[in-house]
Simulated scan of single mutants.
Amino acid sequence: MKSFLFRLYLSLMKFRAHFTTMENNNIVILNGSGRSGSNGYAFYKWLLLNHPEYNVSLIEPWPSSHLKWEAWQKIGAARYVITTHQPFKVRKHQINVQLWHGVPLKRMGIMANNTRYRDNKRNEKLWHKNADIVASSSDLYETLMSACMAIETEKYHKLGFPRLDLLDKPVISKEQLLKDLFNTTDSEAQIGIYMPTFRYELEDKTIMDKIKEGNFFAFEDFDGEKLNAELAKRHQYLIVKLHPYEMRLFANFKSNYSNIAFLNNDYLFDHNYDLYELLGDTDFLMTDFSSIYFDYLHLNKPIVFVTNFLQQYKKTRGLLLSPYDEITPGICVDSEAELINNLDHLDNQQIVNRRLYWLHLTSEAKGDSYCQNVFEYMTQEYRG
């Protein structure tokens, strides 16, 4: 019922916004990715800096039933509508540029085990009707996305993803990041970041209970003090960036760890940072089924894959590629004990070679700036 009412709301607001006068130099970005690696936000910041001749508006969070009418007027007046999730536009003559939010590893749409036929068919129609330009990174990306969303091949253009422009240009130094999050200085510091996928969809209350108790890995053998001590011995620092829903479970959790810090969206919004503007300062990534690892390949740094819910995730939603240990160029661990045993040797030449192999498969877009690629294509191909 909620989804029906929300679709009805969108239809009504689209109808009203349709009567707003469209201007060719108006760009609106509907950002559904927050600050955790948003192509929309990265593109927005780049446009403000490089193309002041355009009127650029950032609408977030999107989608939302709480937008002011002024926001809908901006959407209706835009020639170009940039989206990070479902394609959207108010009128036929607008140009929708679909930036999506990652190379998919998890099944979604018609490929997922936990979606409904009716919803999938509705999504297919939205992509067919509304998406004009789908930014792509590779043939593999296009194959995976079309398997899930049935996107027509002519919509794809290998322009690259704007957020990747941020990886090699951190907005602050590693020393400043260490001071901000850990309140310390350490010339030998190695900073890691742990970014798991959204585990709530596993529909397992025991996982959420573990997270609520402070067990952010949801390991059976979790011991936060022990892990912190092992990290400290090695001058390693771990940033924990959970899904916003999981972070809310930590409302009353105060970290007293010296080498583990929790990064929430407040820090990013307060400083106008996107997470990808900090990733270049990190030395290794830890994740499970999040597609962030495809992006992190561009930094050519170690990746640790946490697999304690691998079989459960395969059954509940499914993965697009397998076997898992072949598609993940890094060390796999399913317990804290195994993680600690690998902290001294996160990388080797064989793993480096595998990272480069997967980077080659997932990154074919050319150019020095993916933001520039997207801007030039959308404005030159679709002139007013």
Rank of each mutant, 00 (worst) to 15 (best):
K121R: 12
R116I: 12
S322F: 03
H157L: 13
L359E: 07
G330L: 00
L126T: 09
F161K: 03
L339C: 11
I133P: 10
Q380N: 15
F294S: 02
L58D: 07
P162G: 13
L105M: 01
L99K: 00
E277G: 03
F15E: 06
G214M: 00
T21S: 08
L249Y: 05
S33G: 15
L126H: 07
K169H: 15
R7A: 12
D180I: 03
N341Y: 03
D209N: 15
L346H: 02
N215K: 00
S38W: 02
N114I: 10
P170T: 02
L263I: 07
R116P: 01
I211H: 10
T282L: 02
G214W: 00
G280M: 07
R354Y: 03
F253H: 14
T307E: 08
L278V: 03
K254Y: 07
Y44K: 00
N113L: 13
Y276I: 02
H93M: 12
L346I: 11
I292Q: 00
A261H: 10
L58G: 13
L159R: 03
E336L: 11
F284K: 01
G76Y: 05
L297Q: 01
I292P: 05
E175M: 06
R107M: 13
S138F: 01
H66P: 00
Y377I: 14
N228I: 02
L321C: 01
F284W: 05
E230C: 00
L126A: 12
S38E: 08
L242W: 10
F253S: 05
F161V: 13
N215W: 05
N228S: 14
E246M: 12
A337Y: 04
N265S: 15
T83Q: 10
H271G: 08
P162V: 13
N341C: 11
I239D: 05
N300A: 12
N348M: 07
K254I: 06
E70M: 14
L67Q: 11
H298R: 10
M22G: 03
K155R: 14
N183G: 14
L263C: 07
T197N: 08
P61F: 03
S290N: 13
L343H: 03
I151Q: 06
G109H: 08
N183H: 15
R234W: 01
Q176C: 09
V171R: 03
D186P: 01
E70F: 09
T206M: 11
I151T: 06
M286F: 04
F222L: 02
N256Y: 05
